[in-house]
Design a protein around this nucleic acid. Sequence first.
DNA 1: AACACGACCTGGTAGC
DNA 2: TGCTACCAGGTCGTGT
Length: 264
Amino acid sequence: MPELPDVEAVCRKLRRDAAGARIRKARLLRWPNRRLERLVAGRSIVEVRRRGKNLLLDLEGGGALRVHLRMTGNLYVIPEIRLRAATVRAYFLLDDGRALVLDDPRALASIELLNERDLRSLDRELGPEPLTGEFTLDGFFADTRRSRLAAKIFLMDQRHLAGLGNIYAAEALHRARIHPAKPMNQLSRRKVVALRESIVEILTDAVQSACNAYAGPGQFEAGETLALAVYGREGEACPACGRPVRRIPQGGRSTYFCPRCQRP
DNA sequence: AACACGACCTGGTAGC
DNA sequence: TGCTACCAGGTCGTGT
């Protein structure tokens, strides 16, 4: 689930459901942490934000809960505590009887309490947000000149750009017609321009469709999902040229691309 | 610096 | 059916 668009959808939903609520009691089931439980109890959630793939729940009095959903995590508010699910890794009982739940089948998600200094260093460690004015062409281009990393690996490195993952890195490269193994500093300026535009377009669309899809339990679940051109489509026809999509390993993960549209 | 690999976890699915 | 092998949207640490 969670690359930037999915995390953004979760964030918007929580902003609606959790911002303003007071935490009565916190329980971390997967990684016992009495200190955190003690420190957040009684504090209100004043704002919910996203930085890259991190969810930040700002707390009254300073500091924030940082939640990273990793591969399969989800964070949501339910009307009351039904904690049957073995996949519930943490929960926060709210003053009004509802509960904020961190649900994660694979238990890879993480949650921690950050002070103001931690927040600043998190911000420094991450690259620009692709859907804001921080993501400038000049800044991005300059960054690409300093790296010989394969384009796909570069895009997934959160220090260059915050929020892309395996799916949207591959999709953006396909849209910009760039081979995933191309060394970043060998891309022409024209290609970097195209890549930047592709990233913004893809993520904008994906945020839109993620927000529709996550409208809420029971709500219109059926928001049309964003069509992926190459990700997960090994052997299927490239929507642009019809050649079969290929899968290659990169950095221990699968990269999907079209060998005709994306030449080395 | 770049890269390869394993670790963290569980669950779904394809193939035999 | 039951088993195995491999795959999965992310990051971190280690070693070469």
